[in-house]
Simulated scan of single mutants.
Amino acid sequence: MLCDEGKLSIKCFLGTATLVLALTISQNVLGLTPHHIWGASLWGPVFYFVIICISLRLFLSDQNYQYAIRATFLGFTFSSSILVAILCPLKWKAFGVYGTMMSIFHYSEFLAIAWSNPSSLSTSSFILNHSLHYALAAISSWIEFLVEVNFWPEMKEYTIITVFGLLICLGGELLRKLAIITAHTNFNHIVSNFSTESPPPAEVCPFQFCETFQVQYKKSKDHVLVKHGVYSIARHPSYVGWFWWSIGTQIILANPVCVVIYAIASWKFFNNRVYLEEITLLNFFGEEYYNYQKEVPTGLPFINGYLLDNPITNQN
């Protein structure tokens, strides 16, 4: 069942998106916006967003406001991106499609946790502040798009490329959210918390490696190994979805440089992350996870995870 914070976020996301779209489209239909200046259509949404933010600050408590303002921002981004895709010249439409996928991804991350594991819910569940590297990657893709749309605008006018990237994004998004919902309370956005309690045995994890990557050694009482649903075809379906989603965003933008960079960077990131996480999972579940590794691949291309030559017994 959806928690109160999730319900509040839906009202803010959908309410903002509906208001911005309805008022902006009405402006255009009634001729209140100059048709020869397409950018003028986007000033209205900014004004509406500011008014909504002020209203939220006045009527909500601080904690609820923190959830609401993020959902509102994503609703604003979603609706504004739709307007860009509809109203802007062809060379800019791909950026509108990209914006809708970004806003859907980040909002649905929060909503999926609010539904499946509300006890771990926080403002970080929107993963808007994922990491500095994530922010730099996004900014670099925007810079590439802006450079190419100005110097080689014809690169951005191949609708079939945008559609292809959109399909990859949607597939990755669907897989990731299915993984989160299937894992239920066994999923959260925190992969590694350092603890010196109960370190894993040397044959599972060399101490130097664990100390460097800050592995969470202590398993929660209700943590179980999920092997059904999408986890029956891939050990890390949420990472598989995220991997292809990230590459799909750059195909949408027709960013040839960032497509390659994103593919390499995402592969290296998930290769390290899966390796680290499987050390922890072997420590948590012992032989059960060892057998699971033998039966199901990671799902990520050329990533095998942390594999042992011999089975181990559960240390818990």
Rank of each mutant, 00 (worst) to 15 (best):
H36Q: 14
L60Q: 08
F126S: 03
Q63E: 12
Y67S: 02
L225C: 06
F151G: 00
L276I: 13
Y217G: 13
Y292W: 13
Y65C: 06
G15L: 09
P201Q: 13
A265G: 01
A22K: 02
Q214D: 10
P297R: 07
Y158W: 10
P45Y: 06
V240S: 11
F73Q: 06
W38I: 09
Y48A: 08
G241H: 03
P153Q: 04
Q214N: 15
S55Y: 14
F95M: 13
Q27K: 01
Y158I: 13
K268D: 09
D62Q: 12
V20Q: 05
Y134F: 13
G39Q: 15
E5Y: 12
H35P: 02
D222M: 03
V191H: 13
P199N: 11
N117S: 12
H184L: 00
S55M: 12
L307E: 10
C258F: 11
T159E: 08
F243K: 07
F126M: 03
T72W: 01
E197N: 14
L136G: 12
N64L: 01
L2F: 06
L175N: 07
N188H: 06
K93A: 04
Q315P: 00
R235T: 04
N193H: 14
I82M: 10
C205H: 02
I54A: 13
Y239W: 06
L111I: 10
G299S: 10
L128K: 08
G99N: 08
I127K: 01
P200Q: 12
Y134V: 02
S81R: 03
V296G: 07
F47R: 04
S131P: 07
L56E: 11
S119F: 00
W267M: 06
F209H: 14
E277D: 15
Y306N: 13
A263M: 12
N193G: 15
E109Y: 02
N64V: 01
L174G: 01
S220M: 10
M1Q: 08
I82R: 01
H35S: 15
S246E: 10
V204F: 03
C169N: 14
E197S: 14
I51P: 00
Q63M: 07
L58V: 13
S195H: 09
D222L: 08
P118D: 02
L32V: 02
